[in-house]
Design a protein around this nucleic acid. Sequence first.
DNA 1: TGGTTTGATGAAATTAAATCATGTTTGGAA
DNA 2: TTCCAAACATGATTTAATTTCATCAAACCA
Lengths: 301, 301
Amino acid sequence: MSILERIHLSIIREVDRQGSLTAAANRLNLTQSALSHSIAKLEKQIGIAVWHREGRSLRPTQAGEWLLAVANRLLPQLTHAEERLQQFAKGERGNLRIGMECHPCYQWLLKIVAPYLDTWPLVDVDVRQKVQFGGIGALFGYDIDMLVTPDPLFKSGLRFEPVFDYEQVLVVGPDHKLRDADHVEARHLAGETLITYPVPTDRLDIYTRFLMPAGINPKRHKEIETTDIMLLMVSHGRGVAALPRWMVEEFGAKFGVKPVRLGPNGVDKQIFLGFREADADIDYLRAFVHMALAHREASSQ
Amino acid sequence: MSILERIHLSIIREVDRQGSLTAAANRLNLTQSALSHSIAKLEKQIGIAVWHREGRSLRPTQAGEWLLAVANRLLPQLTHAEERLQQFAKGERGNLRIGMECHPCYQWLLKIVAPYLDTWPLVDVDVRQKVQFGGIGALFGYDIDMLVTPDPLFKSGLRFEPVFDYEQVLVVGPDHKLRDADHVEARHLAGETLITYPVPTDRLDIYTRFLMPAGINPKRHKEIETTDIMLLMVSHGRGVAALPRWMVEEFGAKFGVKPVRLGPNGVDKQIFLGFREADADIDYLRAFVHMALAHREASSQ
DNA sequence: TGGTTTGATGAAATTAAATCATGTTTGGAA
DNA sequence: TTCCAAACATGATTTAATTTCATCAAACCA
């Protein structure tokens, strides 16, 4: 009945990666002949070619492209399932694969992960900064088990817990004219250089919740990857940035930068921890959420 | 290297469904002995039991439960991939599997699907009313290819197009005292029986956008599955309901019911068509979106 | 307590997969 | 151009894996 086997997907993926049957065969510890036979049989059974044979190279057909997509989606899941089983067998607890959709949360995450690793010595934590189909997709696609994000999705098989509240503030250098201001208005930034993480502006709160409502754009927009460099730039008067208040307070002294409230009421943010409802009863996963919630309690006092 | 094969997943799923190895073997057109050998080998390779042997019955171990979840997730995808390939081979275009997260949209959907089936004779349309992990999860899980929903999720591997705007109105019977009112206030419903589709109140706009903001609850809340019966109930004075205005106008005459605006400004709704970004270039899928958009253009005049 | 059902097991048979040896085509180097 | 190396295809053979068959032991049921 079933014709599409794991080996077929492996071959298709490997041929795509290596570029040739022969190279793929080596990586799979099989002969070129074996792959050739295997694929020929598959093509015969489904009744359509997987590759165009052009000279001595293979180019995927439409069906081949489709199969490649299937392979890239399913093979990692099979691999992960096997790893998980091995871990069951060895009495290990497994990996907690955490996806991050929130740049400055990294510092916060470290504070949760550190004690977690002590309490759960058999669980390994694995943090992925960039996830292929976005955090939600990665959760549904079983690429990650937990997601740190400012954008929760209630309903539909996932669960989100608020674990972290903070105020987003403007960071200015030690000689900046707004240094001692009670708060800043959007128009004050019209002549400034704004430094942000390299993400689309519609995912930056300083745009969506502060600048855009006022119809203001900064003079210049500069993207910086790392927080340290960003703070260094700000402290040397190269621009202003928006970061969590706790972060500015923690690193502010070191860099001599100051936080200023965004607008009269400030910009409040909430970070959520998301996971699959189906995983809700995995103890080491629950424990992580609990530790995050406990940390929230502790720091809200 | 790889030990977990499709057959293992099939066996695990079938044993769970049938309750015994023997029955599962029959369904898989194999002998009981074959399955026994097959899973014995698997258990030996991963080094852990998949089932507790209790007397002559099999109960999944923790690992078994996990494997079962994997099987139920991956096997349908493999099956679908095969079907899709067969369709490629036969020159068919495939199935368009549409998930619905919007009860009254069914009538609207019919208006799109009817001409679509004519334009795309080789594409079959398959509508699924209830999807396991919610619409978004079903899209990510490849259980459906398109989703009709009032709750889009921008970003993260999916795309949503607004295809349908309408006003949600209150439907009252021919003898109802509000029958000729310009609009209704929330407090007017305090003494009424409200008839809705059987979904949680936090997904019913009349609650979230009309009653709850005013802190009002109807006297009674009754859930009805089908629109026809709902309208029949309303027309016979058994209560009031909330439906799209176009629907009331279309069926109003038949049932003698009347639309009344919800609040002074009305409750406007938008319905979206969602699909995977990876599928954005499948012609028959694009075509569906285009037809929906065209229908929107036509009816907005 | 027999009869029947269920899963396990070892050996044999069968089927499937991989290799070996070889052929054909092609792209590049001499 | 020519020749060689690289790449995939193919048929026969070998090897490995899977399936069946025959049989057993345990357990549920009447």
